[in-house]
Structure formats: C-alpha cells, structure tokens
Amino acid sequence: MFENPLPGVPAVESPFFDAIFTKGTIDEDTLAIARQLRDKGFAVIDFPEPDFDRIASEIRDDLNDRYDWEHWRTAGYQAGESLRMQDAFKFNDNVRRIATNARVIEILSTIFGRQAWPFQTLNFPVGTQQHFHTDSVHFSSMPQRFMCGVWTAFEDISEDAGPLVYYPGSHHWPIYTNEHIGARAEQKHEIGAGYGALWRELVKQSGIEPERFTPRKGQALIWLSNLLHGGDKQNDPSLTRWSQVTHYFFEGCSYYTPLHSDPFLGNIAFREMTNICTGEIVRNTISGAPVPHRLVHPPAPAPIPSGSLLRRVARRAKAALTR
C-alpha cells in the first residue's frame, strides 16, 4: 500500500495522484471526477439528489421575495451588481439539504484525502457579473488548497443569463497572497486593485481562454480553490439564473482569510467556521495540534494608564523640549 509522503497536499492535486488512486481504491465515477479536477480545475456532475426538482422549486419559491428585484432591474443590473443571499441554510432546510448532500461530501472527501465539511451557502436568482478571481484569497487553509466550491443549477441557464465563467488549468498556478503583490492587509483599496491587475495580467500572458458553464437544471460544477472563475455579463435582465454555491473546507487544517492577513507581521485573520452538517464550530488545527486560542483571538492592546511610567517620561521629554 502506498504511504503518501505529502498528506498536507490534497490528493487530487498531489504529484502522487496516480499512486494514491490506484485501481480498486476508488470507484470509476469518482476517479473520473478526480481526473477532471486534476487536469482542468473543475468537474461537472449531475447533482446526486433524487428529489432535486421539488427541492429546487421550493428554494426558489421561498427565497424569491427576499431579494430586492426592483433595485436590481432598475439600477443594479447595469452597475454590475448581483442578488445574493448568504447562509440561507440557517432558515431553509432545502438549502441545507443541498449543502449537506452525503454523496457530494463522500466524493470530495475521497478525492481530497480528508473529510469534507460545508461551511457556507450562497443562493443566487441572477448572475453575479463578478470579476474573475480565485477563492484562495478569500477562503484559504493551511495546509493550502483544502477548500473547494460546488455550484448547482436550479434551472437551465443560457449564455444571456450571465453564466459562470472559468479559466481551465489556472488552478495549477501558484497561490499568490498579499506579499506577492507588495501590499498589506490594511491597504484595503489598493489591495483589491492589485489582485485584479494580477489576475488580468496572468490571463493575458498565459493566453488561457475562458469557458462558460451553461448547464441544464440539476447539473453542478465542482471547482478547486485556486481556479480563476467569475460571473459573465448578463445580457438579458429578464432572465434568471437560480443557483446555489456551497463552499467546503476539510478537516485537520487552519482556516483563514489571506486578503486580511500579514502572517510575518503577526496578523493572521483566522476563521472560526461552523460545520453545517453538525452545527458545531470547527477548531483550527495544524499537523494534529490545535491552534492556541490566544492566536485565533489575540487580545486587544491594553490602554496605557494615565499615571504610567511611559506617560510620565513623555511629559518630561515634552517639558525638556520647551525649555
């Protein structure tokens, strides 16, 4: 039996892929998905839910009136805005059922080599029109790449409805974080522009061509965390694009937001996420050891007392300068 010397790399992205997934260790359907993910960074599946049509219909009926349709159709659409609802699983059992689908979790756990768990849902009635990006900037783990998304269509989606757009093979590129673009987390405006410029230049220099996902109802797309993806322009505002994204992490990692982190300045924006399946917060760990609470929740700097030595020294220094 193969002993994997890189347990901190997802099996699906490991240089030892072929040794890990030998004949008989994985079913053919799952192996085909793993190969698509390895080669392209995404894989298309039929969502494994026998009652899918009813569930999709009920989600649409329940969420429809919760969106600000009037604003979107009069101004939001032209401004490139989207309609989205985060974490509807908290009140909608059908959204939760999609997110916690046992077969999807089994597939992800097998091909990553660690137990998958869902931590976030996003429900969309229209296209996002979102600039292409990688999730690894927003949702990341240490070890890296133990995160993925599953996008599921609740209706047939055409090119005019602003479909999902992605760049096959871009997941092979390095994961770039703040230090690579010469920015710090505190530089909020500059940092966003820096990543956008980086992604555009990577696409330009590589010559990679985008693909668009125009699925039929019930199809889903799994993508790896470093795959460049976004939402295409919506050409027809009368069209809907009902869909759900579920984001997954994997056990045995630390979870954080690189966009808001500068690790070598002592700033790591840890995430404490809830496993949707269990309703419990998942603790940050690294190589089997829990991350100390003081690092996940660093104490705020204590205020300097008015009579402290430091203040007395400052007053004396000021007085000396004015003599």
Results as ranks from 00 to 15, higher is better:
M1Y: 08
P5Q: 08
A11H: 06
A11G: 02
V12D: 01
E13Q: 09
P15S: 07
F16S: 03
D18Y: 01
T22W: 08
T25I: 04
E28D: 09
D29F: 11
I33Q: 00
R35N: 04
K40R: 07
F42D: 01
P48V: 07
E49I: 00
E58N: 15
R60N: 10
R60A: 05
D65V: 05
Y67F: 15
Y67H: 14
D68W: 01
E70S: 11
Y77T: 08
G80D: 01
G80E: 01
F91D: 13
F91W: 14
N94S: 10
N94A: 08
N94I: 01
V95I: 13
T100N: 12
V104I: 15
I107Y: 02
T110M: 11
G113I: 02
A116K: 03
W117C: 02
F119V: 12
F119A: 03
Q120T: 14
N123F: 01
F124K: 02
G127I: 01
G127F: 00
Q129C: 08
T134E: 04
D135M: 15
S136E: 02
V137W: 00
V137K: 00
V137P: 00
M147N: 12
C148I: 04
A153S: 14
F154W: 03
A161M: 06
P168N: 07
H172S: 09
Y176W: 08
A183H: 10
R184Y: 11
A185W: 13
Q187F: 10
K188S: 15
G196E: 14
A197K: 11
A197P: 09
R200T: 10
Q205K: 12
S206N: 03
S206K: 02
E209N: 09
E209A: 13
P215N: 12
R216V: 10
A220W: 01
L224A: 02
G230N: 02
K233C: 01
D236F: 01
P237F: 00
T240Q: 09
R241A: 06
W242I: 02
H247S: 08
H247T: 07
Y248G: 04
S254K: 08
Y255K: 05
T257A: 08
P258G: 05
L259R: 05
L259Y: 11
H260G: 03
S261T: 10
S261N: 09
L265P: 03
I268E: 04
I268Q: 03
A269H: 08
E272Y: 06
E272F: 04
M273C: 07
I276G: 00
C277S: 14
I281Q: 13
I281K: 14
I281D: 14
N284P: 06
T285Q: 15
I286H: 07
A289N: 15
L295V: 08
L295H: 06
P298V: 13
P305F: 03
L310P: 05
R312H: 15
A314G: 11
R315N: 15
K318T: 14
A319K: 04
A320N: 01
L321G: 13
T322M: 15
